[in-house]
């Protein structure tokens, strides 16, 4: 499962930051996940719980901030919302779109002890 491997990567970052920034436990993790990133928030929560068992983040709260899919439409010369990478421009139906947002998979901040 995709989310499981992402959660393992998150745990790596947490362990690294704990060493660099001097904290022992993680209480809350804020993630920014773009809607075009193929990540299921529910699967992410499940994976996070499983992967963090017995770690410095066991029982931590996972807050997921979803960021909208956005693209620049050449024809309209403006930014439009897109639900999927292959969708056409919702305004003009054009396919000349350059994705400008919604691909994020970022750890934003932590609440730690």
């Amino acid at each position: 499962m995709h989310e499981m491997s992402l959660c393992e990567s998150i745990l790596q970052v947490l362990e690294q930051s704990a060493a660099d920034r001097g904290f022992a436990r993680v209480r809350t993790v804020w993630l920014e996940i773009g809607q075009l990133s193929a990540v299921e928030p529910e699967a992410m929560r499940f994976g996070f719980e499983v992967v963090t068992r017995g770690s410095l983040a066991e029982g931590a709260r996972l807050e997921i901030v979803e960021l909208p899919g956005q693209a620049w439409c050449m024809q309209c010369a403006k930014t439009v919302r897109v639900q999927q990478r292959f969708h056409a421009c919702p305004d003009c139906g054009g396919r000349q779109l350059q994705v400008t947002g919604g691909e994020e998979m970022r750890i934003k901040e932590l609440e730690v002890d």
């Binding site: 992402l6 990567s9 998150i10 790596q12 970052v13 690294q16 930051s17 920034r21 904290f23 436990r25 209480r27 809350t28 993630l31 998979m105 970022r106 750890i107 934003k108 901040e109 932590l110 609440e111 730690v112 002890d113």
Partner: peptide
């Protein structure tokens, strides 16, 4: 009580990258 806040701003895949 509240814990300390730590800004991370790192890509989840930064280690792999």
């Amino acid at each position: 009580s509240q814990g300390r806040m730590v800004q991370i701003e790192q890509d989840i895949l930064s280690k792999n990258n």
